[in-house]
Design a protein around this nucleic acid. Structure first.
Length: 272
DNA sequence: GTCCAGGCATGCA
DNA sequence: TGCATGCATGGA
């Protein structure tokens, strides 16, 4: 990775495997909005960002250098060698063709609270509507960090809401899950940083105790919000994909099943 | 109108 | 342990 500063922008080059459409709009994060010119605007970690791609370079518009290094490098996982990962995954023939076609999907390092909440909302729901509900949630209860752009609300803030407040956002039957989850995280009964520090099996066990969190939501929270790359979330799309792996997952997925999963998820949504 | 979406809790066997 | 069912909402 090479970084240079031009005016208020940060230009990053020599980062492989980062396509904005495939990474920011592939169902792992729900807060990025594509602009007409192909750039993206969104909020993560309380920071607003406008990001674009110019050839092989990434442009972080109006971004503070300190925030870039302290937050965005980790969020986009810019120091991870995705070419090595892709090469390993391509030992599997389906992944080989999928990566050739959709090269550039990365797993973002999202905040655990935002990821867990988002995937509780995601259950039995479609991506378009998940984004709609989350944007309503942020606008109503987040902080305005840029003109018209809101942070994801904290558990403390959401712990003051009642079930009817969550229902008013269109969360449907998930409202009761969100209400209880917010209160439990706010009062410390659930400690996401602690869960993140546990070995995978124990971390998953803790997440599965949460009302409204099952196998799928737990795996998504672990993969997208807690950096457990070996998690392999099985939703309705991935269950269709599994017909292509009757003997189980290939060895080349070991330890990076979650990254393989994200490519297969995208492939399934385009082709199945 | 019906079907479906990055599922889960509940009840019952 | 495994399976059937109900659940809110909005777009196709």
């Amino acid at each position: 990775m090479k970084v240079k500063v031009e005016k208020n922008n940060i230009i990053v080059s020599e980062v492989s495997c980062l396509d904005l459409d495939l990474t920011l709009d592939c169902g792992q994060a729900f807060r990025w909005e594509r602009q007409e010119d192909g750039s993206y605007k969104g909020v993560a970690g309380g920071h607003f960002l406008h990001i674009a791609k110019d050839g092989d370079s990434l442009i972080f518009y109006d971004t503070d250098k300190a925030v870039f290094y302290s937050f965005w490098v980790n969020y986009f996982d810019l120091n991870k060698d995705y070419d090595e990962i892709c090469n390993r995954l391509k030992q599997d023939s389906l992944l080989a063709s999928t990566i050739d076609e959709y090269y550039g999907i990365r797993i973002l390092n999202q905040d655990s609270w935002e990821a867990l909440c988002s995937f509780v909302i995601s259950q039995q729901n479609n991506i378009k509507r998940i984004k709609l509900i989350i944007s309503r949630l942020c606008k109503a209860y987040g902080d305005e960090v840029a003109d018209g752009w809101y942070s994801f609300p904290s558990a403390e803030k959401l712990s003051t809401l009642g079930v009817e407040d969550f229902e008013a956002l269109g969360t449907g039957y998930r409202a009761k899950y969100l209400e209880r989850l917010s209160k439990s995280v706010a009062n410390g009964e659930i400690d996401l940083d602690y869960i993140k520090s546990l070995p995978l099996a124990e971390a998953k066990k803790e997440l599965l105790k949460i009302y409204g969190v099952g196998e799928k939501v737990a795996n998504c929270a672990l993969l997208f919000g807690m950096q457990f790359y070996s998690c392999f979330p099985l939703d309705v799309w991935m269950k269709r994909v599994m017909a292509y792996y009757p003997d189980g997952l290939p060895r080349c997925f070991d330890g990076i099943e979650g990254i393989a999963q994200q490519y297969l998820f995208h492939w399934a949504r385009q082709n199945l």
